[in-house]
Amino acid sequence: MARWWWSRGADEPTPAPEPAAPPGASATPRVTRARIAAWFESQGYVYFTDGQGELGGLWRSNVFSFLLGGADEHILQVRGQWHRLVTMDRIEEILEICNAWNTERLWPKCYVKVRDDGQISVVAEVSTEVEHGADDAQLGTALLCGLSAASLFFSSLDERYPDPASLPPAVAG
């Protein structure tokens, strides 16, 4: 992140010089899609690369995307989508659940997206600033945080809305 300082009489800010790294210190590696993929492989996770080069995968039946955003790709975003769709007549109910979650917890940010077919996708995401890079442990922590926080939210939805196929059939009377 650039730091700004004003010189006397200057009308425009001038970028302050970046502090020098201590002797012998190495720069923290930049977060890239290749490093994210390498982390997946080191963990034995199965993942895919979509047509735009973005990484994704299935965790606990939910689809996750791993995005690098911002002008310099300095935001790592782990975004998950709940494995079920919701009908429009439940939008107020689902919005209340998302708002309550967002009020009580820092992660993940939860929201809904209305699809073209009128159904609702429930999304959870965790964004992490990685402008200054991340070592392997920091990258792994950020990825696991996104996966586990979103999975926790999706599990709470699964408890509230059990899969009808997992329930015993209703007995006709």
Results as ranks from 00 to 15, higher is better:
P13W: 09
Q119V: 06
A124Q: 01
D117V: 04
R30Y: 02
P169H: 01
V130Y: 02
D11I: 11
T14K: 05
P168N: 03
G70C: 00
G24D: 06
A27Q: 13
A172W: 12
W59L: 12
G9E: 06
W59K: 10
S7V: 01
G146E: 08
L55N: 05
L139Q: 09
W4H: 11
P164G: 08
A134S: 09
L157R: 08
A38L: 04
A27D: 11
A16S: 14
T28V: 15
Y45H: 12
D135G: 04
R35W: 05
V123N: 03
A20W: 01
V171K: 09
V123M: 10
C98S: 03
G133Q: 06
S127T: 08
A21V: 06
A10E: 11
E54R: 10
P162Q: 09
H83P: 02
G173M: 10
R35K: 11
R105E: 00
V31N: 09
E131I: 07
A10V: 05
E125S: 13
R160L: 12
V126W: 02
R35D: 05
A27F: 06
W101K: 00
R84H: 03
L67D: 14
T141K: 12
N102C: 01
F40R: 08
S156Q: 12
L147V: 15
A20Q: 11
A100I: 01
K109P: 00
F154W: 04
C145V: 10
S148E: 14
T87L: 04
L95Q: 15
V171F: 05
G69M: 11
Q81L: 07
S65A: 12
T103H: 07
R115F: 02
G80C: 06
Q43V: 10
V78E: 07
A38F: 04
I97E: 02
A20S: 13
D11E: 13
E129V: 06
F40M: 13
F40C: 14
A38K: 12
G24I: 07
Q43I: 04
W39I: 02
R115C: 07
G173Q: 14
P164C: 07
S148V: 15
V122A: 01
G51V: 09
I91F: 04
A100W: 05
A16G: 05
M88K: 09
Y111S: 06
G24N: 10
D117A: 01
G51M: 07
Y47W: 13
V86H: 05
L147M: 14
S148G: 08
D11W: 08
R33C: 11
S61T: 12
P164E: 06
V112P: 02
V122M: 00
L152H: 14
T103I: 00
G118V: 01
H74S: 14
S121T: 10
M88H: 08
G51A: 15
A25M: 10
V122W: 00
A2K: 14
D117F: 01
Y45A: 08
L167C: 07
